[in-house]
Simulated scan of single mutants.
Amino acid sequence: MELTQATLSDLLARLGPADGYMYLPGELDPQDLTDLLAGRYGAPRTLVLDGFTDPTVDESRGAALLVPFEDRAVRMRAWAYGDRWVGTGTARDAEGTERPVLVVAHREVPELVKAAPDEHVDWVERLVRITGWTQPAQRPDVDWAEMESRLGTALPSDYRRMVETFGEGAFDGYLDLNQEPGTDLGEDGLFIWAGTEHEDLYCWRTEGDDPGRWPVVVRSFDGQDVPFQCQAAEFVCRILVDPHHPFTMARCFDTHWFMNYREGS
């Protein structure tokens, strides 16, 4: 079996939309399949390594992928992709032979509940839930004091939490999260915190002394500025799931995830 992205798509289609799994030919290198899935969904989470299951694995972290194999999973890597868990690795079959496997399982995706104007909402936590993010914090040791000293300003706390939590990568493999705000538009009073392949730049207008009140401004590819009275994490949540948002991604992606550009745990 020659492994390509087309082959992978065919295998996933054969598993269908419901829970399912398949044993693959023994000569197939499981790492090749892992690499293909990582190229599609980003860095995986390790559920099982050398027969030992991560004790933190539960329903919110892909436990459903292990159900078909009981205690026979030898290695298992997992990805959250919208309403689906996808996993691959090796497991022992009924005869006790270790073989490569591909498995999918349903994942519950929380809805983005509307919040009252005066309600405190943890938008970073909502973003974690929307994307099915299960990795540990990717950049917990960012030296914000040093960065803010160089930039000459404090930064919004929700942005710092997004960088610490998700690290280097892109939401839906499309919206790149800057690991340090870009100051290219500083003369316009704008700091760039994210961008897309369509050349839209997501910025803050750095007005006032409280970064927590900086509004989001989209600098579109044609140089137009569109303001939004919200913070960065809320903006990302809304463009992911609201099909009526002016910069929605919901029309392009019916599942939401974060593609981590670095190898995860």
Rank of each mutant, 00 (worst) to 15 (best):
R251V: 12
H198Q: 13
P140Y: 00
G26N: 08
R75N: 13
E199N: 14
L8S: 01
L15C: 01
L127K: 01
L66D: 03
E111Q: 15
A73S: 04
R77V: 05
P110M: 11
G186R: 14
F235Q: 08
V57P: 06
T97A: 15
T97G: 13
A18N: 03
G223D: 12
L36K: 05
P30V: 04
R126P: 02
Y261Q: 13
P17M: 01
T88M: 04
V217T: 02
V48A: 06
A233F: 02
Q229E: 15
F171V: 05
Y261F: 15
A73M: 05
W85R: 01
I130Y: 05
M22Y: 00
A80G: 04
D35Y: 03
Y174G: 08
P243A: 07
F191C: 03
Q224W: 09
T88A: 13
G132K: 08
L201D: 08
Y21M: 10
C230M: 15
S265Y: 08
V226S: 07
R126Y: 07
E119I: 03
M162K: 06
E125D: 10
Y41C: 05
A13L: 02
T165P: 03
T56L: 15
E234R: 13
A232H: 07
R99C: 01
T56D: 15
W123H: 12
P68W: 02
L11E: 03
H120F: 12
L66C: 08
V226I: 14
P17D: 09
P55C: 09
Q229Y: 12
T255F: 08
S220D: 11
D176R: 14
T56A: 15
A43S: 15
R238G: 07
D29V: 09
R99D: 01
L24H: 01
P117L: 07
L36M: 08
G212K: 00
R72Y: 04
E199F: 14
A105H: 07
D10N: 12
H245T: 05
M147W: 11
E27V: 11
E119W: 03
T248A: 10
T255C: 14
R126L: 10
Q179W: 10
V236G: 00
V67K: 14
V57C: 11
Q31M: 14
V74K: 09
L190F: 05
A78L: 06
T46P: 00
A78H: 03
T131E: 01
A64N: 04
V241I: 10
